[in-house]
């Protein structure tokens, strides 16, 4: 079974999925990421899916699960690089990717993660009451 590498860049974990993942590989990535978040104390996870030519319901669910797991472990997840054809197909498939933040590319993803933790940047105190986003988790 192939394994997707997880890179640590500063405070962020970067996962760039470059292979057509089997379901087992996807589940393994889920576990590996949870462990790396805890062992590194990272506060952000960026999942780059630029190279994926499809996202089916299994991978879609994996992305949602990773976002939920990292939230529990005090990390933000941003999915970046979704191809237009993949976005069109996902919507038609009926997958809403609940609770997943997306950005066009890695750079914007890093900005999103930085913005999600205003308490760590010294200059903006004014937003610190509004950092809680609405919960979109629908069921247990």
């Amino acid at each position: 079974m192939e394994r997707v590498p997880i890179l640590k860049i500063g405070d962020i974990l970067l996962v760039s999925i470059q292979v057509d993942m089997s379901d087992q590989t996807a589940l393994q990535l889920q576990e590996d990421l949870a462990e790396r978040i805890v062992s590194t104390g990272s506060h952000g996870v960026i999942i780059d899916i630029t190279a994926l030519d499809i996202v089916d319901s299994f991978v879609g669910r994996m992305l949602s699960t990773i976002a939920s797991i990292s939230k529990v472990l005090d990390a933000e997840t941003v999915v970046v690089g979704m191809r237009p054809a993949v976005a069109i197909t996902l919507v038609e498939l009926g997958l809403s990717l609940n609770g997943i933040r997306t950005a066009l590319n890695v750079e914007r993803g890093m900005e999103l993660i930085a913005a999600a933790r205003p308490d760590e940047s010294p200059d903006d105190d004014e937003f610190h009451d509004e950092t809680d986003e609405p919960e979109t988790t629908d069921s247990a």
């Binding site: 057509d20 030519d53 499809i54 996202v55 089916d56 319901s57 299994f58 191809r83 237009p84 054809a85 993949v86 069109i88 197909t89 038609e92 498939l93």
Partner: peptide, 27 residues
Amino acid sequence: RQLVRTVAVAAKLSLVDQTKVVTAASE
């Protein structure tokens, strides 16, 4: 998925239609 992609490209499906049929095949 890879087989369906190869055949869809050969049948000259558009990129969006290739993506849709490969996704359906995966499900």
